[in-house]
Nucleic acid binder design. Structure first.
Length: 487
RNA sequence: GAGCCGCUAGCUCAGUUGGCAGAGCAUCUGACUUUUAAUCAGAGGGUCGGGGGUUCGAUUCCCCCGCGGCUCACCA
């Protein structure tokens, strides 16, 4: 061991152990009430037990006021020289902010109107050796010295959750939103399943995969970019309502709305189509909004969002035509390029359909504020969707946009195995990476026959962004990826 | 992957036109029996992200590197 100087807290730890014969990390403690329960119960002469982290300490000679916080809330402690035993008073003097303690006592209201535990006994449950940032909130509710260093907070989420109240609230809501999605699907007969994260072939979306060497198989595997092709195998297997809620991985850029590791909900429903998926989306979105504490509307990044169903519907080509004032779908590639340049859109797109998609993003998608189903996408953009009957070149597909964010993507699934094989073959031939490889197992499943099916993918992190008024996807993810910082 | 910005005490930040590095909160000592951003008096605390260069002297100027932030690109 080194002979480095002990920190103040390490000294206190030693004094607790040697001078006071206290175990600073006991294995057991008394059962205690949660702090919100204590608050609900109000004043009482009875002895209650409360446990939590010491987050504030105001010393007044023979009296100390402190703040105790657990996962449910915070309450003030009153610690008096005359009330506490000599031993507890000595322990108190060796406590630091951040220590975890248990107190026993009655509950009263101070003359300033603060509900307070009058402590008669106190036990140290765990000594904190790190001096954490102290965030104080004044009478107007303004937080002082709030920790803002993103790097620090992402690397030490435990600190973020302790000192930044907003952060904890956001992740609690995230959890509740996910529960609400599951409850909805479970309640109408959907079966939750788990499909492989490591896949010998990847598919179901157009994205760069993460690659990994599978040692005992002696083969290259990929982290999934979507669960689609496996869930449809289950539809073929007769699981008529199926969903998976889990991580997908796309080896692409990180920005405000993209995380390479993200959470997606994919659901498939046999004997349904994309219009049923619209209803499912509305139902789930409203259920999630409710558990996030919202009514018919809420504010996202300063904009009021009205979530009263039904949500607006607009055609992909119609909306593009209206917004641009031109029938872009019939334009030649040179003219599209000129329009893209004129609008200052920076893109490497060189084919007609990608250019149209870029123009759609520019003219329509990013300007959509209120919940909107953009329906009937061009078939070139939608290889896994069924073509719309009676309309040429479009598919039964929609995406949901709210506040300029793409939240969901759904379609009436292509269940014609002959057409599907043809489309995937053309796509594979055109791709540099896939080298013409088709997912034959998936096609086999289609060839055994699957019913008409509606399917949908929902970006869960983005849903949480919208419902918690969060501007960056990273802030909805507990442990976003960071480079190692070994210094 | 590109451009711009940042990195100073545990936290929030100031500052040095190149000359022993500052504040508030936190910490430590003392005072105080109902405070709540408690107050008052005093004290300690820094490899100024890392490495190199210029210079009598660099935390400050220059170069390289690391990490982060913002914008953009990639992302059916």
């Amino acid at each position: 061991m080194s002979d480095e100087k002990k920190t103040v807290r390490e000294e206190k730890l030693l004094r607790l152990k040697e001078d006071l014969n206290i175990n600073p990390y006991p294995a057991r403690c008394l059962e205690s009430m949660s702090i919100d329960e204590i608050r609900d119960a109000g004043e009482t002469e009875d002895n209650i037990v409360a446990s939590g982290r010491l987050t504030g300490k105001r010393e007044h000679g023979k009296t100390v006021f402190a703040d105790l916080r657990d996962g449910t809330g915070s309450i003030q402690l009153y610690l008096g020289r005359k009330v506490l035993s000599d031993r507890d008073w000595s322990v108190l003097n060796l406590l630091d902010l951040g220590d975890i303690v248990q107190v026993k006592g009655s509950v009263f209201t101070t003359r300033t109107g603060e509900l307070t535990v009058k402590c008669e006994g106190m036990e140290l449950l765990s000594k904190s050796l790190k001096q954490l940032p102290v965030v104080k909130v004044d009478a107007e509710g303004v937080a002082h010295d709030e920790v803002t260093d993103r790097d620090f907070l992402y690397r030490h989420r435990c600190v973020d959750l302790q000192v930044n109240r907003d952060s904890l609230d956001r992740f609690v809501k995230r959890s509740r939103i996910i529960s609400a999605l599951r409850s909805y699907l479970d309640s109408i007969g959907f079966l939750e399943v788990e499909t492989p994260v490591l896949q010998p072939l990847y598919g179901g979306a157009a994205a760069e995969p993460f690659e990994t060497m599978y040692g005992s198989m002696n083969q290259q595997f990929y982290l999934r970019i979507a669960t689609e092709l496996y869930l449809k195998r289950l539809i073929a297997g007769g699981i008529d309502r199926v969903y998976e809620l889990g991580k997908d991985f796309r080896n692409e850029g990180i920005d405000r709305t993209h995380s390479p590791e993200f959470t997606q909900l994919e659901l498939y429903e046999a004997y349904a189509d994309y219009s049923v998926m619209m209803n499912r989306f509305e139902d789930m979105f409203c259920a999630a909004a409710e558990v996030a504490g919202h009514g018919d509307s809420f504010v996202y990044q300063g904009e009021n969002i009205d979530i009263t169903p039904p949500f607006r519907r607009t055609g992909f080509l119609d909306s593009l035509r209206k917004a641009s004032g031109e029938d872009l779908f019939s334009w030649e590639i040179e003219d599209l390029r000129r329009l893209i340049d004129k609008n200052g859109i920076i893109t490497q797109a060189d084919d007609r359909i990608t250019m149209l998609d870029k123009l759609f993003d520019h003219y329509v998608a990013r300007r959509i504020q209120q919940p909107t189903f953009v329906i009937d996408y061009p078939e070139e953009l939608s290889p896994l969707a069924k073509r719309k009957e009676g309309a040429s070149g479009v598919t039964e597909r929609f995406e949901v946009f709210i506040a300029g964010l793409e939240l969901a993507n759904a379609f009436s699934e292509q269940n014609n195995p002959v057409l599907q094989r043809k489309i995937l073959k053309e796509q594979a031939d055109a791709s540099m990476h896939r080298k013409g490889e088709l997912d034959e197992d998936f096609l086999y499943a289609l060839e055994t026959g699957i019913p008409p099916t509606g399917g949908m993918g929902i970006g869960v992190d983005r849903l949480v962004m919208i419902l918690t008024d969060t501007g960056k996807i990273r802030d909805t993810i507990l442990f976003p990826h960071l480079r190692r910082n070994d210094q």
